[in-house]
Design a protein around this nucleic acid. Sequence first.
DNA 1: GGGAAAGTACACAAATCTGTCTACTTTTGT
DNA 2: ACAAAAGTAGACAGATTTGTGTACTTTCCC
Lengths: 203, 203
Amino acid sequence: MKAEASNLKDLRADTIESLKPRDRILKTASALFNEYGVNNIGIDRLIAESSVSKRTFYNHFPSKNEVIAAYLESKDWLRFSELDKHVSRVKGGAKAEILAIFDFLEQWFSEDDFNGCAFARGLNDFNQGDVKELRGKVDLYFEHWGDFIKTRLKALVEPDEVKILFPQLLSLITGSVIVAQGLGDVKVAALNKRIAESILTGC
Amino acid sequence: MKAEASNLKDLRADTIESLKPRDRILKTASALFNEYGVNNIGIDRLIAESSVSKRTFYNHFPSKNEVIAAYLESKDWLRFSELDKHVSRVKGGAKAEILAIFDFLEQWFSEDDFNGCAFARGLNDFNQGDVKELRGKVDLYFEHWGDFIKTRLKALVEPDEVKILFPQLLSLITGSVIVAQGLGDVKVAALNKRIAESILTGC
DNA sequence: GGGAAAGTACACAAATCTGTCTACTTTTGT
DNA sequence: ACAAAAGTAGACAGATTTGTGTACTTTCCC
């Protein structure tokens, strides 16, 4: 259940020029896919902006789906790396750690390239025949939220209560993302943190 | 602020054969766009399944974006028509009407062709240059939620409180959609109704 | 009943997209 | 130092997509 961090890196601090072709592609893909969506970015554009030849691209990623899969994997890994880092600074046990999610969200929404959640997007984009593998990455992301939240809930409440609180908390999280994106309202995370506090009172 | 119901109809009960070309296209588009997403359905497929000639299609809709716009408009209109109908049967004033949203959601999620929200999807799909008009339809949908909810909140609480409760309620609504779609959990609407009740206690 | 409006059928233009191929150059490891 | 591995540059095949053009037929309504 541990993340296979082998091939996963945080490329955000590196300049494009300093990176090897594969990572240059991934960094560029991350920016382009995030801004325009995987369906609106063609291989040609990705290659051009990665300053890589087409041959090299296809040597590293046998198909477009492969680079999308790598993108999703790295986004997933990075999101939970950051969340873990954020939460590790929090004192106050499981409850405080769950509430810290909402501070983390507000920070995320405030990034200037925030453009919604790649996985909520994937929920819609990966419904067809040849992208089932990509839909699997989306499912994994939601499972990771399950791991993160349920582990902590189990320390606080009875199993029956976990089954109620988990979907509620996940709704508050995903709802925050949609509202932040749709209304441009970054502060929604803080408002929803209050709700999370109230459904966890007594824990 | 009233919906221009002129050209908007509920086509769900009609058979494809009984409809005139334009409505046949809209009914087919609704089914295909809902299942696969607007980016994964080509004009050719839409035309073939509508049993309409290409010329006829382009006579009614000058471009693909136009048919998508019509689809979004009808979805928006239909959603709030249904919600209004649902809510009109509820006794108990503004608070009960807000809570009734969540019963409505559960009903929606239970439809066998439920596949997430076209507008949450549009939030991601319509970010590019030539689809700004479509993004406008998404914004309108969120505005309609604002109209529906804020009108009722104003009858219950002070304006300052409306600014807090509206994003929270909208998060619960949109979060329900994502969780219902992502986890296949229809019951999430009922769980989130409880939260809505609790943030409206005393109203 | 007859003419205008609407629809059919389908070829085709133009753009775009994924992925392959060829021929050449640079980098790397030992 | 030198061979193998990796990368460059760009043409091109084949599929797909949106939208137009042409020639013919059906429907509607006055």
